[in-house]
Amino acid sequence: MFAPQGPTFRELAVQALSSVEHGYDLLAPKFDHTPFRTPQSVLTPVSQALLNLGPFESGLDLCCGTGAGVGVLRQVCRERVTGVDISAGMLAVGRDRERMTTTAPRIDWVRADARALPFGPVFDLVVSFGAFGHFLPEEQPGLFAQVHSVLRPGGRFVFPIGAPPRPGSPAYWALLAFDTAMRVRNALWRPPFVMYYRAFRLADVRAELIRTGFEVELHALPELGLRPDGSPRGRLVVATRAR
Score class of each variant (00 low, 15 high):
Phe31Cys: 04
Pro118Val: 10
Asp229Arg: 03
Gly225Phe: 06
Asn186Arg: 06
Pro228His: 01
Arg166Gly: 04
Asp61Gln: 03
Ala181Lys: 08
Phe129Val: 02
Val150Gln: 10
Asp32Leu: 00
Ala171Lys: 05
Val158Arg: 00
Asp32Pro: 04
Pro192Ala: 10
Arg235Pro: 02
Gly230Glu: 03
Val93Pro: 00
Ser41Arg: 15
Ser18Asn: 08
Arg80Asp: 00
Arg235His: 09
Met1Glu: 14
Glu57Val: 01
Leu151Asp: 07
Ile210Asp: 13
Gly120Gln: 08
Pro222Glu: 02
Asp108Leu: 03
Arg156Cys: 13
Pro165Phe: 04
Glu208Met: 13
Leu143Phe: 12
Gln15Asn: 02
Pro137Leu: 12
Asp204Ser: 14
His134Glu: 11
Arg111Thr: 10
Val194Thr: 15
Trp173Tyr: 12
Val237Gln: 02
Lys30Ile: 10
Leu226Val: 14
Val84Cys: 12
Val81Ala: 01
Leu17Ala: 15
Leu218Asp: 09
Ala199His: 13
Arg166Thr: 14
Arg190Val: 09
Asp61Arg: 05
Pro137Gln: 08
Gly225Gln: 13
Cys77Val: 07
Phe123Ser: 02
Ser87Pro: 11
Pro192Thr: 12
Thr212Pro: 07
Gly120Phe: 06
Leu143Val: 03
Phe144Trp: 15
Thr101Ser: 07
Ser19Asn: 07
Asp61Val: 05
Thr34Pro: 04
Leu91His: 01
Ala145Cys: 04
Asp108Gln: 11
Tyr196Cys: 05
Phe132Ala: 07
Phe144Thr: 00
Phe214Met: 09
Val46Tyr: 10
Arg74Gln: 14
Arg111Lys: 14
Leu12Asp: 05
Thr38Ile: 05
Ala28Pro: 02
Met100Thr: 10
Ala177Asn: 10
Ala239Cys: 11
Ala199Val: 06
Ile161Lys: 01
Leu209Trp: 09
Phe193Val: 00
Phe159Cys: 00
